[in-house]
């Protein structure tokens, strides 16, 4: 057993874990954060995507011990005060989800993508989400959602600057 210390969705955690425990299982089984799903066994689907220090990672390929000392954000930690995060809101607005299984991963991948590239083109969005598979939507509305979220976030930043 190894001791890990990390922040999950803004909360400090200290846990004893098996060295081979995957981050996704740590989140799901120990913390009961089950938004991230496991959709494959080859790091191919992205259903397990979370943020590690603000960057999107596939939590099925990160060991819980590797997350020690870092900050993890899951879909559960995205909404603030009951308000959907702009990316979540855009997914709803654009009907970017159907069965919802890929959705938490897709949303976290989008947050990561927009942090790196706040104004992506459609092609960049498609490239950026290549590692996140969805069987339901044909990706059309997911792409719309990402582009809409980018716009909304740009709008928000401008808004804050105006008030400042």
């Amino acid at each position: 057993m190894t001791q890990i210390e990390l922040t999950v969705n803004g909360e400090k955690r200290s846990d004893e874990v098996e060295p081979r425990l995957l981050l996704v299982h740590y989140l799901r089984e120990l913390l009961g954060l089950r938004a991230a799903n496991v959709g494959c066994d080859t790091t191919s689907c992205g259903a397990c995507t979370v943020l590690l220090d603000g960057k999107s990672v596939k939590s099925c390929t990160v060991l819980a011990v590797q997350a020690s000392g870092h900050e993890v954000t899951t879909a559960e930690g995205l909404a603030v005060g009951g308000e959907l995060h702009p990316v979540q809101a855009a997914f709803r607005q654009q009907h970017g989800l159907q069965c919802g299984f890929c959705t938490p991963g897709m949303v976290m991948a989008t947050v990561g993508l927009l942090a790196e590239n706040p104004h992506p083109t459609e092609a960049e969005v498609r490239e950026g989400l290549e590692g996140n598979l969805c069987r339901c939507t044909g990706y059309h509305n997911i792409v719309r959602a990402v582009l809409a979220a980018a716009q909304a976030q740009a709008g928000q930043v401008t808004g804050e600057q105006v008030t400042a």
């Binding site: 089950r34 938004a35 799903n37 995205l78 959907l84 709803r92 919802g100 949303v107």
Partner: peptide, 21 residues
Amino acid sequence: VLRTEDPRFLTTGGVYVEDLV
């Protein structure tokens, strides 16, 4: 009409058989 099922799927995620407690 926007989907009323979405907020749950977007935040805590759906409760699939694997998630059942």
